[in-house]
């Protein structure tokens, strides 16, 4: 009994330290976002309020950033899924040389520094007149999302028993019917997870948007960077803007943990 109590105390201490480490930066972010008055020599803000949120919504630049970020993300998600679902199906069901080569190529993609692809794309985009073009940012955002989405979808397809497809085919189902009636119901979790990955990747994408979109198109991360980087530093609006990409992120984390229980299932089950 005594031992169990001691163990519980230790668990509480260790978990608390880790949680504080994870949450402390977020706590400070919220302080900045809600601080209306905060003197330099004081540890905590004197007055809290929503001043910076209304400030953010009053400015045209930041309002547009919301629009760009939250319309690009679903488009990127759809485009990534459209590429990855057929590819993932092939990679999972036909384990031939082509599949392995494809997997390696996509994995290599993950190892490439994004900035290098960015500076290689920049002259191409300049030549085609696509710099600062809204639609041209979709493929740029997909580069980083594809490896994760593809892996999640491939894994989902792999968990489908092969006999099921064969049985359906023997009974006369077309390939499309096999996909719709056999694979979709069994793989939607993995596909949804892959889609959410693409969505949140697009929300987070920074350097390619900065290179290929700015200054005409500024997403939320670019706006945040403008307030933080460079020589003039105004943490409050940056903090208020950050909340708007952090909250969806937390929502996604909860969604993954509670309902999808895929790949990142951290001790949930």
């Amino acid at each position: 009994m005594e031992r169990e109590k001691k163990q519980k105390l230790w668990d509480a201490i260790i978990i608390s330290i880790v949680m504080i480490y994870i949450l402390l930066p977020m706590f400070v972010l919220f302080e900045y976002a809600f601080a209306e008055v905060w003197y330099a020599y004081q540890l905590f803000p004197v007055k809290l309020g929503l001043k910076w949120f209304s400030w953010v919504f009053k400015h045209h630049d930041t309002r547009m950033a919301f629009f760009y970020s939250y319309t690009l993300a679903p488009l990127v998600m759809l485009a990534t899924l459209a590429l990855c679902i057929p590819a993932g199906y092939v990679l999972a069901t036909r384990r031939n040389r082509l599949s392995i080569l494809t997997e390696n190529l996509v994995n290599m993609n993950m190892a490439l520094p994004v900035i290098v692809i960015g500076i290689g794309l920049l002259p191409l985009y300049t030549r085609l007149g696509l710099v600062g073009n809204y639609w041209a940012l979709i493929p740029a955002h997909m580069i980083g999302a594809i490896p994760y989405t593809l892996r999640s979808i491939t894994a989902a397809f792999m968990q489908v028993p092969k006999d099921l497809e064969e049985a359906a085919r023997v009974l006369g189902a077309t390939r499309l019917q096999v996909i719709r009636k056999v694979y979709m119901p069994l793989t939607w979790r993995g596909i949804l997870a892959g889609g959410i990955f693409a969505f949140s990747w697009s929300l987070n994408e920074f350097i390619l948007t900065l290179l290929l979109g700015a200054p005409a198109i500024k997403t939320l991360p670019i706006s945040i960077y403008e307030y933080v980087g460079g020589y003039y530093l105004t943490p409050q609006p940056a903090a208020a803007l950050s909340i708007f990409i952090l909250l969806p992120s937390i929502l996604v984390a909860i969604l993954f943990e509670r309902y999808l229980q895929v790949s990142l299932g951290l001790g949930g089950s």
Binding site: I22, P25, V28, P221, Y225, S242, I245
Partner: peptide, 18 residues
């Protein structure tokens, strides 16, 4: 445990700023 996954979904630029 859900709290632990938050940094995975936090944009790097926000993480850096925090």
């Amino acid at each position: 445990s859900t709290i632990m996954t938050i940094p995975l979904f936090t944009p790097y630029i926000v993480g850096a700023f925090m």
